[in-house]
């Protein structure tokens, strides 16, 4: 049999659940931004709790809290109260998954050199200390003097380390970083290389061209190339050396011109 306290606690729990369902039902039906904000505020503590649980893995709490909060917002839109699940039970794996993805993705980001990373932390700490001491924001020169490093290094640290969106535009330009950054295989480089190589290859006879095609086009082994051409591997090896010397000479000449 339930005690009075247990009964009260159960009744309170049921009423909270009904209130939760009602809130999500209204949001689902209206899509109201105001309701969404209300829900987010009500459950933001879950994002905070979960973010704290993952502190100590090399990512600052504020970053984790931000990731968790974004996951919470996404989760609010996906939650369907008709399925009978409590929101906290639904959102915890969602937030946990996003945090774990963040850890995984972060390990693929470009890492700052250790020295810069450490100096960056010192710059931030010193800036806070000087702000308190001077009663104003310190200049780069003041921070540099306190840390015994050059002003350039302080400025460099201020720039380094931030992650920016590839979709961000600069100034009045409509071009995003993604538009400006060169691709890994820059098309102009490829065209240029193609031009140079094809003009150098023009001077080779058919047999030599066949060897280049096998070895550097199809990336076959010397033995396989020899088999295709009906010659010995030794012959392919000698011929390859001769062709490369010839091409090198031609490329040197064409670059000098």
């Amino acid at each position: 049999m339930m005690t009075e306290t247990e009964l009260q606690s159960q009744t309170a729990g049921e009423s909270a659940e009904t209130e939760e369902q009602e809130l999500f039902r209204r949001y689902r039906e209206t899509g109201s931004r105001e309701l969404r904000n209300k829900i987010a505020e009500k459950y933001l503590h879950i994002a905070a709790i979960l973010a704290k649980k993952f502190v100590g893995r090399g990512v600052e709490y504020d970053d984790l809290y931000q990731v968790a909060s974004l996951a919470l917002l996404k989760g609010i839109d996906r939650f369907d109260e008709r399925k009978g699940l409590k929101f906290s039970t639904f959102i915890t794996p969602t937030i946990t998954g996003e945090i774990k993805n963040y850890f995984r993705d972060r390990s693929r980001l470009v890492h700052l050199p250790r020295r810069i990373s450490e100096l960056r932390a010192s710059v931030r700490r010193t800036a806070e200390e000087l702000s308190a001491e001077l009663g104003k924001k310190p200049t780069a020169a003041e921070i540099a003097e306190r840390l015994g490093v050059s002003e350039e290094e302080v400025l460099y640290c201020a720039e380094a380390g931030g992650v920016v969106s590839l979709d961000r535009t600069e100034g009045d330009s409509d071009m995003s970083f993604y538009d400006i950054l060169p691709a890994e295989n820059d098309v102009f480089d490829r065209i240029e290389t193609h031009d140079v190589v094809s003009s150098a290859l023009k001077g080779l006879d058919e047999r030599e061209k066949k060897l280049v095609e096998c070895r550097f086009g199809e990336e076959l082994s010397q033995a396989e190339t020899a088999r295709r051409m009906g010659v010995s591997q030794m012959y392919v090896s000698r011929m390859e050396r001769k062709i490369l010397e010839k091409l090198r000479e031609r490329l040197k000449k064409s670059m000098a011109e």
Partner: peptide, 13 residues
């Protein structure tokens, strides 16, 4: 009230 979160976190991990 945080026990629900603890249980869900255990399941998630």
């Amino acid at each position: 009230p945080e026990d629900d979160i603890s249980l869900a976190l255990l399941s998630a991990l």
